[in-house]
Simulated scan of single mutants.
Amino acid sequence: MEYSDEYRDKAIVHGLARAIAAEVSSQRAYRFMEFCGGHTHAISRYGLEDLLPANVRMIHGPGCPVCVLPAGRIDMAIQLANRPEVTLCVYGDLMRAPGSRGQSLLRAKSLGADIRMVYSTLDAMRVAEQAPGRQVVFFAIGFETTTPPTAVMVRMAENKRLEGLSVFCNHVLTPSAMHSILENPKIRNTGGRAIDGFIGPAHVSAIIGTQPYESLAEQFEKPIVVAGFEPLDVLQAILMLVRQVNQYRHEVENQYSRAVTREGNRRAKEEVSQVFELREQFEWRGLGLVSSSGLKLKRSYAKFDAEIRFALHNMRVPDNPACECCAILRGAKRPIDCKLFGNACTPETPMGACMVSSEGSCAAYWTYGRLRDEQLRQTS
């Protein structure tokens, strides 16, 4: 196959659905978590859950970096942006991400903070080059997919002697979060039953490869299938998971072989390893403190670390108690289980990160499945 529409062929889609139905056992339930928000949106957009047998359920996982960023880190960024000498550069999805007490970067900007929306690390560098008298801070966020560009930016800033540029680093690691989900019984046992396997993230795996998941599959005896984002990708991954469960296997399989290898992108990983090192722990919204799950700049690049430059202290603040985002991120609840969903919380008036982010599960339900799921809730 060469074109995306070939991965949406209806005949093949229904053929895969029939294959899944033929191979599932009526004597058990299957619960698979898709870690990535891109998969959640694909499942909702193409109505894939409607094609699955009743005893195959997809559990929505952490989703995306904006969703899992805790409110305290947003508060720290706002604290930075409110300094008169600072220009804060952020990606668009972050602007409305909720901090504590109704704060957001968008609100801080409306009150006068110098916050610039950028589309790449190069944009942040241009801001620093054009404003040599300012302290320009790049709000770095993302899973392994967006970490290499940040590493390259830091090395370029050193070569160009951009002393006014620094990084507020919030890059996090997918395998560590998956380990936390599987290790913690309060998280992994959703609705009284354990998660049976994972659909692994696609873009992340294009960087790190499939090898980092092998120890997880072995330790916790859970199959992991890395998959692409098209309907055929997702359904084939589900079929592969069903077969592993039925055969009592727990292996890492690569459905997305057209973009992912076992080794991953060696050049990208080298760039990251030159600039970053592990934090002992990092807080995830919904998962709490997760060991070895975040990155920070190495000591040799400490002069570009905004947390050191501005003597920032890590902040932990409670989430909105009325919002079920934390439970949704760990798969314990669905968006429609939240009383705010579709009422106080919509894309126009988001109350939680899962509705703010373009890859959030609440945004997916609203965009593609709200009316259907609302009808199911009313008739259940």
Rank of each mutant, 00 (worst) to 15 (best):
E6T: 10
D9G: 08
D9H: 08
K10P: 08
I12W: 06
H14C: 10
A21P: 04
A29M: 11
R31F: 08
F32W: 02
F35E: 03
C36Q: 04
G47A: 06
L48M: 04
E49N: 13
E49S: 15
E49V: 10
D50A: 12
D50T: 07
P53H: 02
H60Y: 14
C64P: 05
C67R: 01
L69Q: 08
L69D: 05
G72T: 06
R73M: 08
I74T: 04
A77F: 08
Q79W: 09
Q79V: 04
A81Q: 00
R83W: 07
P84N: 14
P84F: 15
P84K: 15
R96E: 04
R101G: 13
S104N: 13
L106P: 03
S110R: 13
L111F: 12
Y119S: 10
S120H: 07
D123K: 03
M125A: 07
A128P: 02
Q130F: 06
A131H: 15
E144T: 08
V154W: 01
M156F: 07
N159E: 12
R161P: 00
R161A: 09
C169S: 14
N170R: 07
V172A: 10
M178E: 00
S180H: 14
E183L: 11
P185I: 14
P185K: 13
P185R: 12
N189Q: 11
R193N: 05
A194F: 05
D196C: 08
G197N: 03
F198W: 05
S205E: 00
I208S: 00
I208E: 00
P212W: 00
Q236K: 09
Q236A: 07
Q244P: 01
Q244S: 03
N246S: 15
N246P: 14
Y248M: 14
Q255N: 10
Q255L: 08
Q255M: 06
R262D: 11
E270V: 09
V272I: 14
Q281M: 12
Q281R: 15
V290N: 00
V290W: 00
S292D: 11
S293G: 09
L297N: 01
L297M: 03
L297P: 01
K298P: 01
A302W: 07
K303E: 13
K303T: 14
K303C: 12
F304T: 03
F304K: 03
E307T: 15
E307N: 09
E307G: 08
I308E: 13
F310E: 00
F310N: 01
L312E: 05
R316G: 06
V317T: 14
P318W: 02
A322E: 12
L329V: 11
P335D: 03
I336W: 09
K339W: 05
F341D: 01
C345V: 05
P347I: 02
P347T: 04
P347Y: 07
T349H: 11
G352A: 09
G352F: 11
C354N: 03
M355R: 00
E359P: 03
C362V: 06
A363I: 09
Y365F: 14
T367E: 15
L371A: 14
R372A: 10
D373T: 13
D373G: 03
